[in-house]
Simulated scan of single mutants.
Amino acid sequence: MKIKYLTLLLVVIFPLFNQLCFGQLNPKEKTAIDDFGKQLATDLIKDNLHGSISVAVVKGSSVIWSGAFGYARMKENVAADTNTIYRIGSITKTFTAALLMQLVQEGRVKLDDPIEKYLPEIKNLIGYDSTIKITFRQLASHTSGLSREPNMKGADAGPLNEWEQKTLTSINKTSFIDIPGARFSYSNIGFAILGVALSRVASVPYIQMVQDRIFNPLHMADSFFALPENKLSHLAEGISNDEHSVNTSKPLQELKGRGYKVPNGGIYSTPNDLARFAIAFTSNSKLLNSESLKQMQIIPPGGERYGLGLGVYNYEGIDLIGHDGSVPGYTSTMFIEKTSGYAVILMRNYNSGSTDLTGAAQQLLKALSK
């Protein structure tokens, strides 16, 4: 028992003492966040993986609290901190949808334009015919009718600089599970196709667009699709523990690339950087006008709790928008409470654990907003 208590002290007090910011918190916020932090630290001990969870809490246009719990390396006592980098998984889809809305604002594309207008290769989808017209809106809202993944071995492997070609090759191996617009059906390959189509609209590579249009304007200096050499030491080691086993080999392998999975799950970031992105949805946005932000939150015909790259929820009386993500070795969540302007970002360097990241973020937002 003494050993367990000492471990708790080391995890909770030592790393957090130098990392957390409490200066701007009112008493209600401090109580809610303090209880939240204690629960995260307790859950980390229960999980017994020597992993980490990093957090940022936003109110309006400011990060009011951020910190890190636990360790960045499974077999080393390297404390995670507010500069620790994680993979954000499918939260990348929100970035892709934001690019779409920027191009809509500029009049370069319409949400209901058929994809084939810019990407004729989409006609190679299995089952595609002249009566089927998949639109930008349908790809961004998971109502395109496409399967979740292509039926192609190795589609999710390969170097970053070949992701677009891997996507085009995957189109030939992708089929429909329903007609476009009929219902919500989550599709990773759909968002990859969307990313390629956006690059065709703009005549600019997708990754460069994210850098120029989102990372740079929001000063997201610790966000990347490929980690520079000088940032590798800041990456939390990914621990894959989904299948009743624990390993770090798969997450390490994916550092070299994830095949076609770039516009749907390719970004590395930190909670503080992702907070800057969340702020663009809570206050005067540097990215999108108010009509575009509203449009992203409209559930289209056939849709289900999902607008354009954004989940749309009512959780116990509060209205939330956001996204979560999971790739081998990493899980993340970003949720925003629309009325109060609070947002919570959580990142973890393992997959399965005592903390339900999405549920924890929603509960904290309720405590802060009530």
Rank of each mutant, 00 (worst) to 15 (best):
E106V: 11
Q105F: 03
A97L: 06
T167H: 10
L103H: 02
F184P: 05
P180F: 12
A155E: 13
Y186Q: 14
N172T: 14
K110W: 03
I115H: 02
T169D: 15
I132G: 12
F136D: 03
G154W: 11
R183G: 11
L119V: 06
T135N: 01
F95D: 10
F95N: 08
G154A: 14
S130L: 00
R137T: 03
I177C: 02
N161R: 00
L99E: 04
Q102R: 00
Y128I: 06
I134W: 01
I193D: 12
I193C: 11
I134C: 00
S199W: 07
M152R: 15
S199L: 08
E116W: 07
L111F: 07
Q105H: 02
F184E: 10
L100K: 05
I122P: 01
D112G: 08
R183Y: 10
Y128V: 04
R148L: 10
I171E: 05
K123E: 05
E149T: 15
Q165W: 07
A182N: 15
L194C: 00
S144M: 05
V104T: 07
I171P: 06
G158E: 13
L168E: 11
F184V: 09
I88F: 04
E162L: 08
G195Y: 09
I91M: 15
G181K: 05
K93C: 11
L139W: 01
H142A: 13
N172L: 12
N161Q: 02
N151G: 06
S130Y: 02
K123F: 02
G107N: 03
T92H: 11
P114S: 12
G107K: 04
S130G: 02
E121P: 12
G195K: 11
S147T: 15
